[in-house]
Simulated assay, not measured.
Amino acid sequence: MSQIKVLLVGGLPHLPLDERVQFATSLTEKIKYQFGSGYEHFVHQGDYATVDGEELPVFRWTARTAIAE
């Protein structure tokens, strides 16, 4: 399965910049990123951004959910 480098935008302001570049397996699947005591959810809406000279799909924050115990 190939990995696509993506940029996570929005959500918690204290999500470190170095953690905003992640890998996804599809542009149509939601990214569920664990951070702290919950999950940040991101989706691709067709946007792209240039990061260090590389064009990356932008996944925008949509929601946060708690980790079930």
Rank of each mutant, 00 (worst) to 15 (best):
S2L: 12
T65P: 02
K30T: 12
L12K: 12
D47F: 07
M1K: 14
Y33N: 08
D47T: 03
A49K: 15
V21W: 05
G36Q: 15
T62M: 10
A24M: 05
E40Q: 13
I4S: 05
V9Q: 06
S37V: 13
V43F: 07
M1G: 14
G10S: 01
V43Q: 10
R20S: 02
E40A: 06
A63L: 12
E29K: 10
K30D: 10
F42T: 02
V43C: 10
G53S: 05
E19K: 10
T28P: 00
L8N: 02
E55M: 09
D18W: 14
Y39C: 05
V58N: 07
F23N: 10
R20G: 01
L17Q: 14
A63P: 03
R20E: 00
E19G: 00
P16I: 02
I4P: 05
G10D: 01
V51P: 02
K32N: 07
E54G: 02
S37D: 15
D47V: 00
G11C: 00
R20A: 00
V9T: 04
F35E: 03
T65I: 02
T62Y: 08
H44F: 13
E40P: 03
V6C: 14
T28S: 04
L8D: 00
E55D: 08
Q3R: 15
Q22M: 07
V58P: 01
K30Y: 07
L15R: 12
Y33G: 05
F42G: 01
V51M: 06
F35W: 15
E40Y: 09
E55R: 12
I67H: 08
D18T: 11
G53M: 05
Y39E: 04
H14K: 08
W61D: 01
A49I: 12
K30F: 06
E54C: 04
M1N: 10
P16Y: 06
G38D: 05
P16N: 03
Y33Q: 11
A68D: 05
H44V: 04
T62D: 03
